[in-house]
Design a protein around this nucleic acid. Structure first.
Lengths: 350, 350
DNA sequence: TTTTATTATGCAATCGTTTGCGTCTAAGGA
DNA sequence: TCCTTAGACGCAAACGATTGCATAATAAAA
């Protein structure tokens, strides 16, 4: 247990130079002779020197740490985004502090507080479901700390955002169902106050209109779609029952959540309704499980990894441009992954 | 954009006292009068003062940041462990830097390097699959930085560890299958050099012996079980085919991976083999998907969240006891979650 | 009133690096 | 020989908070 940490001064002493010289030598400063540089470098790793980032951070006013706030790490979506963010940011020499809000506003606030204290160089976040007051984010902005929002964003904050094109996601899902011959398409949506669900709904409606299909409000069912997966599954079951207890039944369901769709599959199977022949299904998010269930679920993929990478890139761009930043939104195009839950017509191999 | 950060000196000036006084007042030092304390505190939040952790860290030699290294965040197991770690550590005022090794030794090493540079107060890690040289971990130990290992550990490093009782996991899985009337039980195992798979295998064998069942080496199949899920699924399919192309076929499979078991389910269904009547299945990890597939998969749950919490607690214990630390291992008992993939006998509701 | 506690602060060094500016030496130019 | 000039470093002041050791100011004791 060597408690003695060695500093540039230690290596300076050994070499009979000053700390400044060592510092410069280590950074390959042009005004230091090659001989000294070499000597310094050698002595450095002979002594097993580890630079102290904290001192540098204090001196430079830059910690090289950036904070990431997500609702929870154990939802595949966020885990995957994190992965993307990490990849590009680490390459630029940044470290990530990841904190989770659990979708609770107060936790989100205290996380921000903590990040600010650590002097992060910036924050990349996805807003908690519960958050309605955005003053803690405003504080970040007012302190001049770069902020990028992804997925769950708030346009009014005037910051750079990276989002999925949820409207488009709704459109392609429904278009696909229509192509498969469905005409009576129901929709499971999440809580109406959330942007993403409004957008998907809008896409759903527009796609129907586009094809001159009627919009049946009874077929638009709302439930909590961001919760523990078991709950969402249950919600899906509940909504499905509700959907089929009334007179006219749909021949397709576009669900804004994969898990709700899986719940629907369970119920439909229990009711001996054939999938996709009697009812076709499309989910949203392209969760891993979608390919394991029976039948495999068609789903809208959000390119989560790329979303993370993009968020990181937008962030880098923001901190590297010292100009006035006019906020901009980056929108990712979703992609429909077609599986048997919606394949009524045999796929024609072109 | 207020770039001007306000420090204790700023608030000291306003109040005509010195920085020392402000510092003490903020920390509620007994030798500061209540009047000044109050004045300081008021001025502090009037000016919207944010303490600078970095300065404190430098001065105290303690960053209040602890590093976590995992293979990847987008595997449910690790995401869940992280969640547990975060929960208890954040409560103690620590921040987490999470970095991923992608199961690559060199990345693991550079991650450690980075963490050390940031002066983390400790490291909690799960070793990369590929790692065979442990010198970078030794470096951590030699520098006196507390280290706790979980799940994928190395006993020879002599550090505190938190692991799942894989042996026991193997035992309860096989015992259950035997109880269900299976006598010809096959096993899918991961790469033999990994501790966890050896242990599960040992449990498998011991359980068989215990019940006087023969061990058929042809039924012990090895494959890469930690990889992208799709690959593992494919591995499961391959192993299953291999298993059933020979003469005598088993009546149960205990798979060390849920996804391999799912691959098996797919193949068995394709071969029109009844699950669980002809072949019963048990997986390992209790991944979310296990409950969504058809039939739902019985699996060994590893209590991942608790593993994270425990790892964090062990860590706290270690840094708070200034005594000599004799390393100790903490072992979590796994639990079998029984679902229909293995339920041959109707469950008797007691 | 002088001395001794007590209380409430101030001083200044320190943590490890970085960096603007000054200094010294030796080589080259006039 | 004197002056420039470039090259190679050293000096010392930051960065913001903490803390052991004074030191004032007031109160209590003598």
């Amino acid at each position: 247990m060597k408690k003695k940490k060695i500093t540039i001064r230690d290596i300076a002493d050994k070499l009979d130079v000053t700390a400044s010289t060592v510092s410069r030598a280590l950074k390959n400063h042009p005004r230091i002779s090659d001989t000294t540089k070499k000597a310094v470098v050698e002595m450095a790793d002979k002594l097993n020197y580890q630079p102290n980032n904290i001192a540098t951070a204090l001196r430079k006013g830059k910690s090289n740490i950036i904070g990431v706030i997500i609702p929870t790490s154990d939802r595949r979506f966020f885990a995957s985004v994190i992965k993307g963010i990490e990849q590009v940011l680490r390459e630029e020499g940044y470290n990530l502090i990841i904190s989770q809000s659990d979708d609770i506003a107060s936790k989100e606030e205290s996380n921000i507080e903590a990040l600010l204290r650590v002097q992060v160089d910036g924050i990349i976040a996805s807003i908690a479901r519960e958050t309605t007051d955005y003053s803690h984010f405003e504080r970040v902005i007012n302190r001049g700390v770069p902020l990028v929002l992804f997925d769950r964003v708030n346009e009014e904050l005037g910051v750079n955002t990276v989002v999925n094109d949820d409207y488009q996601g709704g459109v392609i899902a429904v278009n696909h169902l229509i192509e498969q011959g469905c005409t009576k398409i129901a929709h499971f949506m999440g809580k109406r106050h959330l942007n993403i669900y409004q957008e998907r709904l809008r896409g759903y409606k527009d796609a129907l209109k586009e094809h001159n299909l009627p919009i049946n409000e009874d077929w638009i069912l709302e439930g909590d779609l961001i919760d523990e997966t078991e709950q969402v599954l249950e919600t899906g079951r509940r909504l499905t029952h509700k959907l089929f207890e009334n007179g006219e039944v749909p021949d397709a369901i576009f669900s804004s959540s994969d898990f709700a769709a899986m719940g629907a599959i369970q119920v439909l199977k229990e009711m001996n309704i054939k999938i996709p022949d009697e009812v076709a299904l499309v989910g949203f998010s392209n969760d891993l499980s979608t390919s394991f269930i029976d039948p495999p679920l068609t789903s809208v993929d959000q390119h989560t990894r790329q979303m993370g990478e993009l968020a990181a890139q937008v962030f880098l761009q923001q901190i590297n441009s010292d100009s006035k930043n006019i906020p901009f939104d980056t929108t990712l195009k979703p992609e429909l992954i077609i599986r048997s839950s919606s394949m009524r017509k045999e796929k024609v191999n072109a």
